[in-house]
Design a protein around this nucleic acid. Structure first.
Length: 268
DNA sequence: ATGGTAGGACGCCTA
């Protein structure tokens, strides 16, 4: 059997529910992970997701900022909503589900963007981002009681040179500074996670999942970054059948500045 | 070196 999971920073789930419906209708992933839903739980748009067959929905939302959600065709069990950095932000959901006879643990993350100034001494938002990534070391790919784990989300860091349009020009830009990229890769490896997008599309091929709203012509200038990620435990990495970055979604009507990433697994 | 756009909520913060 094949199993697919999509991740998308949607930048307001209420405003962009028509785009979510378009994605689900066109690609029908088994599970959709959303970030930046910007919607308190009591106002989350359950009905259109259920109507499309996504009857199992977990949400962690707050008014105006952040917020993550998981919508699934198959049953989900809530495992954890962890309050990273104890700020009360809604930036994490963990759930387990069954696929191909395996019990899989899924983490959905929205890592803080970190502000503009890449100095933790003068910018508390950057300090928060570094602390958050450090705390993610506690999230392990080897999960007791599970046969494998998947971690997706907007991690707001582009770790490799080929994850940005210009490594040299972004070295001092938040999302690609050495303190972020080195801490990020160290955290990923310490947790036992495999970077599935790079397993499927090795360096030096460029991968971008985000293009700024501020570009005059995002497609022409193509100054993108890979801020969204799909990781798995080593137990699931050999089953990866493909990864697709839906660049076209950046050109949809009133788009998010991030595009969906869909991973497909072939589970026996 | 700078400013550029977008969303939530309605002044200004965050991305």
């Amino acid at each position: 059997m094949t199993f697919s999971i999509a991740t998308w920073n949607i930048n307001s789930v209420r405003l962009r529910m028509p785009l979510v419906a378009q994605l689900l209708t066109q690609r029908a992933p088994d599970i959709l992970c959303l970030q930046e839903t910007k919607t308190p739980d009591e106002l989350f748009p359950h009905a259109p997701l259920r109507a499309l067959g996504y009857e199992h929905i977990l949400i962690s939302g707050q008014k105006g900022y952040h917020g993550v959600a998981i919508a699934s065709r198959r049953p989900l069990k809530l495992v954890e909503k962890r309050d990273f950095c104890a700020k009360g932000d809604c930036r994490h959901l963990a759930a387990s589900f069954e696929a191909g006879g395996r019990t899989i643990l899924l983490h959905n993350f929205y890592v803080p963007a970190g502000g503009d100034e890449p100095d933790p001494e003068i910018n508390p938002k950057f300090r928060h981002k570094l602390d958050f990534v450090e705390e993610m070391r506690g999230i392990r790919a080897a999960a007791p009681g599970h046969d494998g784990a998947i971690l997706v989300g907007d991690l707001n860091i582009a770790p490799l040179e080929s994850d940005v349009w210009s490594h040299r020009q972004l070295l001092n830009v938040v999302s690609h500074t050495p303190v972020e990229t080195e801490g990020f890769e160290a955290m990923r490896k310490a947790g036992g996670w495999v970077d599935l997008m790079r397993q499927h599309t090795p360096e030096p091929q460029k991968i971008y999942t985000w293009w700024s709203y501020r570009a005059q012509d995002w497609r022409a200038s193509d100054r993108g970054r890979r801020l969204d990620h799909v990781w798995s435990s080593a137990t699931l990495a050999p089953q990866l059948a493909g990864i697709e970055v839906l660049k076209d979604a950046r050109g949809w009507d009133r788009p998010s500045d991030h595009v969906p990433v869909i991973a497909r697994f072939a589970l026996d």
